[in-house]
């Protein structure tokens, strides 16, 4: 059932404004393929150099960035492509982290089995979330995923015998051969790159295009004969699967999980990364994660009022670059390209 127009319009417009990126509709060639190649090689070279140039704490920050970027991108799969903004992905992410730590520390199992179980648990959670939420859109979808996430948080907080309650679960997860930082860094880099590529493939597959179609007009897609709920269901599940994968990596990295990992704040932070980077750009998640984590660390170096500074930055971003940093950069490049041609 399509809600009356008056109820749908404002939010969809907000969603569109966020997602309305020239790129996702008709991807313009903002850069020549050669320029793209150069940028890609530069990025790879930069990422490979990290553990050698800035070993220690800064490398661990980059690891954290990569993991959260994956979470952000999984949120973007839904928010940017299907037009469904989820506030439950932090919980899906955290479920995987909990399962991995529980299996390894309490159960004494192998980390790789734990990883499989973690991803499976997150995917199952995503299936449940999806079944309940896909028939809604806009603010209803937002609130439903928020509520589902809060249920997970409440369970983690109160089911003390399994989750350790407020204190959480602790223990080294990563196997010994991953203990050295550069090795661990490359493990994370390869894993997250692979996931990014898979997500990119997914978003740009014919199936991914149907999600974009649903974002643009659900009724038109239905008229064209697409099973809209099924497509959204699959989209949500795939997105949850990647969030879960990111969650298992986080368990490897952090060796610790507590209810704050599944809390609303985690979902919001993931979403903020998407918005700052650019909704519907996929790689915007990486940019957003890098900017937010870097700023958090830089600003808190100078003032204990760092949350205020971050909040201010979000507002500024929203006013001057509502399409996100990556979207903004693309628009600039496109404009320059147009000037060149004319």
């Amino acid at each position: 059932m399509r809600p009356p127009l008056s109820m749908r319009e404002p939010l969809e417009e907000v969603g569109d404004a966020l997602a309305d990126d020239a790129l996702t509709r008709t991807p313009p060639r903002v850069m020549s393929s050669r320029a793209r190649l150069i940028v890609a090689i530069a990025c790879v070279a930069l990422l490979v150099a990290v553990p050698f140039v800035v070993p220690g704490y800064k490398t661990s920050l980059v690891i954290e960035t990569l993991i959260f970027a994956t979470l952000a991108m999984s949120i973007d799969l839904l928010a940017g492509y299907a037009g469904r903004v989820s506030l439950g992905h932090g919980a899906i992410f955290g479920i995987a982290t909990y399962v991995v730590l529980y299996h390894v520390t309490t159960g004494g199992g192998s980390p790789w089995v734990a990883m499989l179980l973690g991803v499976a648990a997150a995917t199952v959670a995503a299936v449940v979330f999806a079944l309940l939420a896909i028939r809604t859109s806009g603010v209803y979808f937002l609130l439903l995923t928020l509520a589902l996430g809060m249920i997970v948080w409440g369970m983690c907080l109160r089911w003390t015998s399994v989750t350790g309650g407020e204190n959480g679960l602790r223990g080294t997860v990563a196997p010994a051969w991953l203990a050295a930082q550069p090795v661990f860094y490359f493990f994370i880099l390869i894993a997250t790159s692979l996931m990014t590529w898979l997500m990119w493939r997914f978003a740009h597959s014919p199936f991914g295009l149907t999600l974009q179609g649903i974002r643009e007009s659900e009724s038109r897609m239905r008229t064209l004969g697409y099973n809209v709920p099924l497509h959204l269901f699959i989209g949500f599940t795939v997105s949850g699967f990647f969030a879960g994968l990111a969650g298992t990596l986080y368990a490897f990295f952090n060796s610790f999980v507590s209810p704050s990992t599944v809390a609303l704040a985690q979902s919001v932070e993931g979403l903020l990364m998407v918005i700052v980077g650019g909704v519907g750009t996929l790689f915007g998640g990486l940019v957003g994660a890098a900017v937010i984590i870097a700023l958090e660390n830089l600003v808190s170096f100078y003032t204990e009022r760092w949350p205020m500074v971050l909040g201010f930055m979000f507002i500024v971003t929203m006013i001057f670059a509502p399409e996100g940093l990556l979207g903004f950069a693309r628009t600039l490049l496109a404009r320059r390209g147009a000037e060149h041609r004319s």
Partner: peptide, 19 residues
């Protein structure tokens, strides 16, 4: 500042020790 949050505490501890 550990922000009353275990993940932040862990991150700050890393920074103090490693940086």
């Amino acid at each position: 500042d550990d922000a009353s949050n275990p993940d932040t505490a862990l991150q700050k501890a890393r920074r103090l020790v490693e940086q």
